[in-house]
């Protein structure tokens, strides 16, 4: 368990970050909820998994979301670059299926710098680009106490300007202030009272 999450999340503005692991979509949604303003989500239209706005509405208002349906990764990167450079969006999320090379990664980074918006690439494990500012591995974790079933393990596995770390977080559906809805908690086995709950 690392120290405070606040310096690391939300990650640095005007940079492109990466997330991988089975919980990456949740990570993207929670990051979007922390930032204000419209969000562009880029996905390839032929993929069977679709975002469910009703599920999303627990985390952020789906009215803030625009979805761009692209045909392949080339288009996805082009749209992401255009959107990042424009600057009217706070966050651009791109679902990428193929490995991302250094050149396209660097181009995204420069576009994000120009437009002062944050980019997030959702990649499959090991497909990341060296140009990414940070990379997070997100895995949902089983919570034996069964609080509200949003416990996640966020592992910061690459950081260009800082230290690595890992945190257990859960999403507080009930809290009203959007900025305080992300709670850092201790790992499931280490909580007071956990011993007799599991044993």
């Amino acid at each position: 368990m690392s120290a405070d999450l606040a310096p690391h999340f939300p990650p640095r503005r005007a940079r492109v970050h990466e997330a991988c692991g089975p919980g990456m979509h949740g990570f993207a949604a929670m990051l979007a909820a922390q930032l204000e303003g419209p969000v562009l989500w880029i996905r390839e239209y032929w993929r069977p998994e679709v975002l469910n706005p009703l599920g999303l509405s627990d985390i952020l208002d789906p009215a803030r979301l625009l979805v761009a349906q692209v045909k392949d990764q080339t288009d996805a990167l082009a749209v992401a670059e255009e959107a990042l450079r424009n600057g009217s969006l706070k966050l651009v999320v791109a679902e990428l299926g193929e490995p991302l090379g250094l050149t396209p990664g660097r181009r995204l980074q420069l576009a994000a710098k120009d437009g002062r918006s944050t980019g997030l690439c959702l990649i499959s494990e090991g497909n990341g680009s060296n140009a990414a500012e940070t990379r997070w591995r997100c895995t949902p974790t089983f919570d034996p106490e069964g609080l509200d079933s949003t416990l996640q393990h966020w592992d910061l596995i690459k950081n260009k300007s800082g230290t690595l770390g890992f945190w257990h977080v859960r999403w507080d559906r009930e809290a009203h202030r959007e900025t305080h809805r992300l709670r850092v908690v201790s790992a499931p086995g280490e909580r007071p009272g956990a011993a007799h709950a599991t044993g």
């Binding site: 239209y45 009215a63 625009l66 761009a68 349906q69 045909k71 288009d75 749209v79 424009n86």
Partner: peptide, 20 residues
Amino acid sequence: LGDLITRIGTRIGLENVQRF
């Protein structure tokens, strides 16, 4: 934002920028 949607639309088709 409208201009951005137009710009993206010239590349991937305006009907492919969607909202829920």
